[in-house]
């Protein structure tokens, strides 16, 4: 398999070109956004809850194929799941879904959306912010 096909495998390109969960919820229960100042990737996420369950999630953003595709995959991964459980979602679960070898620089692209989602959960449900996001020097969230 060529280097291109390894990184930009078909499912990544599909999510990049046709992102799932793209858009903004009109009446969100929680909102967060984040940036990766290294490359200028931006992601904003709106969330809706049904009780403690994530009933809907939408994202908008500008950035590289990896950051946008990863966030698109993330939305499919978390809808219908318990907010507290997703707040503890190990990054490995998303990385497994992405399923491609990532260099340290691209890893930050891939995990930006997950960070923003966890910040939104923190705002909406008071779930704890994992250490890796609150102390990250490279990514910024609000």
């Amino acid at each position: 398999m060529s280097e291109f096909d390894q990184l930009y495998r078909e499912v990544i390109l599909d999510h990049y070109r046709n992102p799932r969960g793209h858009g903004v919820l009109e009446h969100p229960d929680a909102v967060a956004e984040g940036q990766n100042p290294l490359c200028g990737d931006e992601i904003s996420i709106t969330l809706a809850f049904d009780g403690d369950t994530i009933s809907d999630v939408r994202f908008e953003g500008r950035g590289c194929a990896i950051s946008q595709a990863a966030t698109s995959m993330l939305t499919e991964l978390v809808v219908g799941r318990d907010a507290a459980e997703v707040a503890r979602l190990p990054k490995e679960e998303l990385l497994e879904e992405i399923g491609i070898p990532l260099t340290p620089v691209r890893l930050k692209c891939a995990l930006l959306g997950l960070g923003v989602l966890k910040v939104a959960l923190n705002k909406g449900k008071g779930t704890p912010l994992p250490e890796e996001w609150s102390s990250s020097d490279d990514l910024s969230f609000r």
Binding site: E3, F4, C39, D41, G63, A65, I66, C109
Partner: peptide, 21 residues
């Protein structure tokens, strides 16, 4: 196409340029 993706593919072609702000 985001510069990160441009630079990544160029790297595989043996061309080193910078993408970012």
């Amino acid at each position: 196409i985001h510069p990160h993706d441009v630079c990544q593919i160029l790297d595989w072609e043996g061309v080193a340029i910078r993408g970012g702000h």
